[in-house]
Amino acid sequence: MARRLRREWLPLGLFLALALVPVLAPLGPQSFILSLMTRIVVVALAALSLDLLIGKGGLVSFGHAACLGIGAYAVGILSAEGVTDGGAHLAVAIAAAAFFALATGAVAMRTDGVHFIMITLAFGQMLYFLATALSAYGGDDGITLPGRSTVLGRDVLASDTVLYLAALGALLAAYLLLRRIAASRFGRVLEGARDNPVRMEAIGFRPFRFRLAAYLISAMIAAVAGVLLANQTGFVSPATMAWQRSGELIFIVVLGGLGSLHGAILGAIAFILAEELLSHWSEHWRIVFGPLLILAVLFARGGLAGLLTKGARP
């Protein structure tokens, strides 16, 4: 038990700290803190889903923001059409992301390495340009939501605290689910195919099917993050699925520590807090931010999670 605690202190501590946010937020500028932290949790959820692909599957998807965008647009388009029910938003978002993942994954999973990166980027950009062309829903400018998603006809998510807790609940559920998946038969095959696909075929596994399933799971989770993101910003635009967003997500996963799952959460916290702090400090914050990120990747092998748990390996 003590050993287990020593090994798991980082994810436990992370979720404990995140759970304390609503309690501590009233001590400062409450709505600012809650909105910032909700953004962090939502981005962490998207990064977590990407870690299943990159960290566990070795599949560097450069189009992951597209799934985030699908979730956000599910809220935007349905709300604009008068459907405000959050359940409907989630269902449509997940179904649309699943369809997108199967259609593009069936092609993308036949490639590997740089080609896989490029083809996922291309699919992501296709969706981006499709969104800019949706003139009925704001086109380039996007759409402002009339309000947040409702739950059983009630607008409980109108409270920032409730929205934050909903996002945190989704993050915790996804984290626990992905941990189980990683330790399952399926997860073992996915990791084996990452390390040595030829060996896997030689013992009778076809990596394609397992990778496609991981892509599907990952896309559906990212779509949930997209639904939450739209609710947090109150606004949906093509910028959500721009390739720069996909790049940020990859960066967060690498920064936090590939394949550890909780590393993606840590990476999201570090990335967004650093961005927030530096942008208050100077308008040229990117000049500092860039080198900081490079240093972090160069010197923290295993990411921030690896840095913090050094020596605590079982």
Partner: peptide, 18 residues
Amino acid sequence: LAVQARSGSSFRFLSPVD
């Protein structure tokens, strides 16, 4: 993992393989 390849489906997501 090689035993797993010939014993049942590997599309099992929730129970720990170890």
